[in-house]
C-alpha cells in the first residue's frame, strides 16, 4: 500500500522534474520579454531527437551525443530569437506569442521531414535494470532525471544570485527601464534567455526520452505541462516553476495510479484552469516586497 504510493510518487517526481525544467524555461523568456514562448516544448523534442539521431544514427558515444544535442538545440533557440522574434521586436506581445506558436509548428514539421514520424527510443544512460529499494522499483533513469534537475537548480540559483548576467536578468524582469539605464543591453539578455531556455528544454528532452520515447510531436504535451508548471508557480518565478512542475508531475502520477491513466493528461489542464480561476498569480506570484 505504502510502497505503491512511493512508487507513484517516484514516477511523479521524475516526470515532474522535466516539467520543472521546461517551466523554468518559460519563466526565463517571460521575464526577459513578457513573451510566452510556445516553442518551449519543441526545445524538449529537439533535445531528445538530436540525441537519438547522434547516438543511434551518427554512432557517436553518449557523452558526446548528449552535449551536442543540447548545443544544437541552443543554436535553434538563438536562431529563433534572432530571425523570428528580433525582427518583430516592436510588435505587440500577442504578436510575438503568435510568432512562437508558428515557430513551434515549423520546428515540428522540420523534425518530421528530417527524422520521420516514428517513435524513437534513446537508451537509458545507465541501463534499464530497476534498482529495488525496499519494494520500490527505481528506474536508474529516474535517478538521472532527479539528479540532473537538482544540479541544474543549484547552478541556476548560483547564476541568478551571484553573476552579473544573472542579476541583470532579474533586473530586466523587475524593471526594464531601470535596467537599461544601468547599461544592460536588453536585446542581448533576451537572446541569452532564449539560449538558456533551449538548453533547459533540451536537457529535459534528453533525460525523459528513454522513459517516454521521443517523436516529433512529443513537445506538445511536455510544453503544455511545463507551461502549467510555470503558471502554477507564478509566471516569471523560476523557483515557482520548479515547485509547480513537481506538483503537476506528482498529481498526474497519483491520478494515473489511483484513478485511471486515461485521466493523466487532464490533470495538468485542470490545474491550469484552477490556478487561473482562483490564484491567477500562481503560488509564488506577486510576492515581491515594495514600499512606495
Amino acid at each position: 500500500m505504502f510502497t505503491e504510493f512511493l512508487q507513484f510518487l517516484l514516477s511523479g517526481v521524475t516526470v515532474g522534474a522535466t516539467y520543472a525544467l521546461v517551466g523554468v524555461g518559460f519563466s526565463i523568456i517571460y521575464n526577459a520579454s513578457q513573451v510566452i514562448n510556445f516553442a518551449q516544448g519543441e526545445f524538449v523534442m529537439l533535445g531528445g531527437m538530436m540525441a537519438w539521431f547522434l547516438f543511434e544514427r551518427a554512432g557517436l558515444p553518449m557523452p558526446a551525443a548528449v552535449p551536442l544535442a543540447i548545443a544544437g538545440t541552443v543554436l535553434v533557440g538563438l536562431a529563433l530569437e534572432k530571425f523570428a522574434i528580433e525582427p518583430a521586436r516592436n510588435a505587440s506581445i500577442v504578436t510575438l506569442i503568435i510568432i512562437t506558436i508558428g515557430a513551434s509548428i515549423f520546428l515540428r514539421g522540420g523534425a518530421q521531414l528530417v527524422w520521420g514520424r516514428d517513435f524513437h527510443a534513446l537508451p537509458a544512460l545507465s541501463g534499464d535494470a530497476p534498482i529495488d529499494l525496499s519494494g520500490v522499483a527505481v528506474n536508474p533513469q529516474s535517478l538521472w532525471v532527479m539528479g540532473c534537475t537538482v544540479v541544474v537548480v543549484i547552478l541556476l540559483h548560483w547564476f541568478f544570485s551571484r553573476t552579473m548576467t544573472g542579476r541583470a536578468m532579474r533586473a530586466v524582469a523587475f524593471n526594464m527601464l531601470a535596467a537599461q539605464l544601468a547599461g544592460v543591453n536588453n536585446r542581448l539578455i533576451l537572446m541569452f534567455s532564449f539560449g538558456l531556455s533551449a538548453a533547459l528544454g533540451a536537457l529535459a528532452g534528453v533525460l525523459i526520452a528513454p522513459i517516454t520515447l521521443t517523436y516529433p510531436d512529443v513537445g506538445i504535451m511536455l510544453g503544455l505541462k511545463g507551461f502549467c508548471a510555470a503558471i502554477l508557480g507564478g509566471l516569471g518565478y523560476p523557483y515557482g516553476a520548479i515547485v509547480g512542475g513537481l506538483i503537476v508531475g506528482i498529481s498526474e502520477a497519483m491520478t494515473a495510479g489511483y484513478v485511471s491513466s486515461a485521466y493523466k493528461d487532464a490533470v495538468a489542464f485542470v490545474i491550469i484552469l484552477m490556478t487561473l480561476f482562483f490564484m491567477p498569480n500562481g503560488l509564488f506570484g506577486r510576492r515581491g516586497i515594495e514600499r512606495v
Binding site: 542579476r167 532579474r170 533586473a171 523587475f174 524593471n175 527601464l177 531601470a178 535596467a179 539605464l181 515581491g288 516586497i289 515594495e290
Partner: peptide
C-alpha cells in the same frame, strides 16, 4: 540617469 520615481530593483 537616475530615473523619476527612483526605480530601484525592489526585490533585489
Amino acid at each position: 540617469q537616475v530615473p523619476e520615481g527612483r526605480q530601484v530593483f525592489a526585490p533585489m
